[in-house]
Design a binder for these strands. Structure first.
Length: 419
RNA sequence: GUGGAUGUAGCUCAGCUUGGUUAGAGCGCCAGGUUGUGGCCCUGGAGGCCGCGGGUUCGAAUCCCGUCAUCCACCCCA
């Protein structure tokens, strides 16, 4: 039996309604903050990701779906959205003409990882990016937007983690300090950390092995080694978050896996998620646009994991089963089908959702079907009704029935279903 | 790539320890109980190479080996 590729899955109609709800809410929220949608291709030149994300990152070094095009070029299914959006911003010179470049994107990403709870090889993100704004207030707006989005989607029990990872001026010096500290203590850490100490010392800070924690706590923190500009920026971000009454926890050990982040980084976690507990993550990426061949244009953004969003139970149980049908038509008499087809077409043209049974079953069976489809009304056409040009209309909630002339059907339902 | 758990009806699962007549339940689906009326109830029905391959045995869903898949976790991220 052919089945879905490992790490991919089908989103069945019932769950798809939850996704649609989240997307609808997101678009509405973004409109209020002045963000507009951009849609970029799901595959790009491999070089774009290698240069943008960092060739030494896990994503680029071992998780990308890369393949050779027929002309020999190397293409890659996007593992994240920001690089492609930045490419489009540069290619179309969007920053030149837009007085306030704010963009969002919704779509699938691809990473070849081992699947587990909240992690798929094809997964979906909602991305938000703002370009050309360097002041701390946009950092705060982005964070506030992220939290508003989650709140409106009904997710509760979330925690905002905040950090500053410094910039090109102060991070190299900090890394040296950290390396120095690690060199002395390395032998006492777990095997993974000893490897990290050489490859990516920042990751040691993120280690979860209990035995390593006491030593990690003594390591120098990035937030104590920021340059004056980064320190001031971070302080102002925190001051404004306080001003807006937004709760957060400064987490100096919060390290992002993409090389392009500078200064502000943040993450929102939920206890409902298991090991992959981050619903949303992002940060500032001031050097990225230039790095990819564009102008000196700063940027900041975040991504929400839609699978993870869907895993978090909505605060209030909004289990309103969607009605698939307002009017269910039941042609009983031989020849009634023709009248039903005409009536169905007419009702649909009038904006009603109308269905009829295509199996030609008995009345009882069709009534059951109408009930299961959530029909508000059932309209029956038997020999008796057909002879007199009327339909017997049953209100499924009250079980009341009355006869309605065929010509008045649309009007009848409009009066009872609209408003 | 590594570790652990699990694979039986469309779905959720029992049966496996102590091998033994046609493999079960609930939900769902279909039909009947009402010559033209849904929900609740009752009755009946359809639907399973018991993940796949091999082995042990008179006999395997059940024991053994292998394999594949899924889930969870490590790594890392949304």
């Amino acid at each position: 039996m052919i089945q879905a590729i490992k790490g991919t899955r089908d989103i069945l109609p019932e769950e798809a309604e939850t996704w649609q709800r989240h997307e609808r809410i997101a678009r509405a929220v973004f409109a209020r903050y002045g963000y507009r949608e951009i849609r970029t291709p799901v595959f790009e030149e491999t070089q774009l990701f290698a240069r943008g994300i960092g060739s030494e990152t896990d994503i680029v070094s071992k998780e990308m779906y890369t393949f050779e095009d027929r002309d020999g070029g190397s293409l890659t299914l996007r593992p994240e959205a920001t690089a492609g959006i930045v490419r489009a911003v540069i290619e179309h010179n969007l920053a030149q003409s837009d007085p306030m470049l704010k963009l969002y994107a919704i779509g699938p990403m691809f990473r070849r990882e081992q699947p587990q709870k909240g992690r798929q090889r094809q997964f979906h993100q909602i991305n938000v990016e703002a370009f050309g704004m360097s002041r701390p207030s946009i950092d705060v707006e982005i964070v506030e937007l992220a939290l508003t989005l989650l709140a409106e989607c009904g997710v509760g029990g979330c925690e905002l983690l905040l950090n500053s990872v410094g910039d090109a001026h102060c991070r190299p010096a900090y890394l040296e300090t950290l390396r120095g500290a690690l060199a002395k203590e390395k032998a006492r850490l777990c095997a993974d950390c000893q490897r990290r100490a050489d490859v990516n010392p920042l990751r040691v800070l993120d280690c979860k092995v209990p035995a390593d924690q006491p030593l990690i706590a003594t390591l120098p923190k990035i937030t104590d080694h920021l340059c004056a500009e980064c320190r001031d920026h971070f302080a102002e971000v925190r001051r404004q978050l306080d001003l807006l009454g937004i709760a957060y926890r400064v987490e100096p050990r919060l390290v992002r896996g993409l090389d392009y982040y500078v200064r502000t980084t943040f993450e929102v976690t939920s206890s409902a998620l298991g090991a992959q507990n981050s619903v949303l993550g992002g940060g500032r990426y001031d050097g990225l646009v230039h790095e990819l061949g564009g102008p000196e244009l700063c940027g900041i953004g975040f991504a929400v994991g839609m699978e993870r969003l869907a895993l978090i139970p909505a605060a209030e149980g909004e289990s309103a089963q969607t009605r698939r049908c307002e009017v269910f038509l039941v042609p009983l008499a031989p020849g009634a089908l023709d009248r039903a087809l005409l009536a169905q077409r007419g009702l649909r043209a009038a904006g009603r959702s109308a269905l009829l049974d295509h199996e030609g079953r008995g009345l009882k069976s069709q009534m059951k079907k109408a009930d299961k489809l959530g029909a508000r009304f059932v309209a029956i056409l038997g020999e008796d009704e057909q002879a007199r040009g009327v339909w017997t209309v049953r209100n499924m909630a009250s079980s009341a029935q009355e006869e309605v002339p065929e010509a008045r059907l649309a009007e009848y339902f409009r009066e009872r279903l609209d408003g």
